[in-house]
Amino acid sequence: MNEWTMIEAINHALAFQLRENPNTIILGEDVGVNGGVFRATEGLQQKFGEQRVIDTPLAESTIIGMSIGMASQGLIPIPEIQFMGFIYPAIDQILGHAARLRNRTRGRLSCPMVIRAPFGGGIHAPEHHSESTEAIFAHIPGLRVVIPSSPARAYGLLIAAIQDPDPVIFLEPKRIYRDGKQAIEDNGEALPLDTCFTLREGIDLTLVTWGAMVKETLQAAEQLAAKGIDAEVIDVATIKPLDIDTIIDSVNKTGRCIIVHEAAKTCGVGAEIAALLAEKNITSLLAPIQRVSGYDTVMPMFQNEHFYMPSTERIINAATKSMEYR
């Protein structure tokens, strides 16, 4: 067993796949000699060579576009976009091609690739380095969107994403890259995609979240427990396609649901979860669904980012309000 932070777990999952499959290629800006600006690919170029861990020119559209070409020829590219804020030049390629290649050729060509990008706020980064825009990708048919929230899930979900035959957007909550270690066996074992993980069982209230907000949500659950409120905490992990069944089962039990996400509120993934609960399960609700989220504002620069980020306190307030409905 190894004790790894999330960033170390990601590094080892990448190394495992590079070792296992010679068709696996990592490419991106600064991923080689420098090991990535967050060190996710540290040491990989030394180990696997410049042909497998490639420092590309600074060109996001082509990093993704060429990955599509590589994937079509039997390679498994793992492009890194340095920050989610710089993925937009490649949106054309992701939405216009990666997500569609299998369908438009009726399966003749496909696009197995994992686009990794650090995302989210809370690390006092400069402008454009803190957004959470996962909903843009979750909206797009043909993509998978996976977000780990712990070192072990980062390892297992990244392995699964790389083995998946379709394009996966793998968003890494950089705020918790180095937030504690977990014991992980480096055995290449994949965790299931397309399922939620129930992190804490409870009977009074369901808290649904993903990514870095898992941290505040678990803290809120602990503080609620001290007040005698027993919250269940679900880490959605794969936000597209969404495992609504696990959430429904939980809400059937608790009758109350609060969705917590860092992204802006309007058309966030929380809206989709709330809509699905309303469609499929409205009669089991004892209280209105609530969303604790970022605001519909530009992500403030770091002096004010803590006002924007959902806090443990905001989660507890929402939970308390929910419990008032009888």
């Binding site: 060429m66 070409g69 590589m70």
Partner: peptide
């Protein structure tokens, strides 16, 4: 861009 990736492969 796809062509460049295919050429790489």
């Amino acid at each position: 861009c796809h062509a460049v990736g295919i050429a790489f492969a």
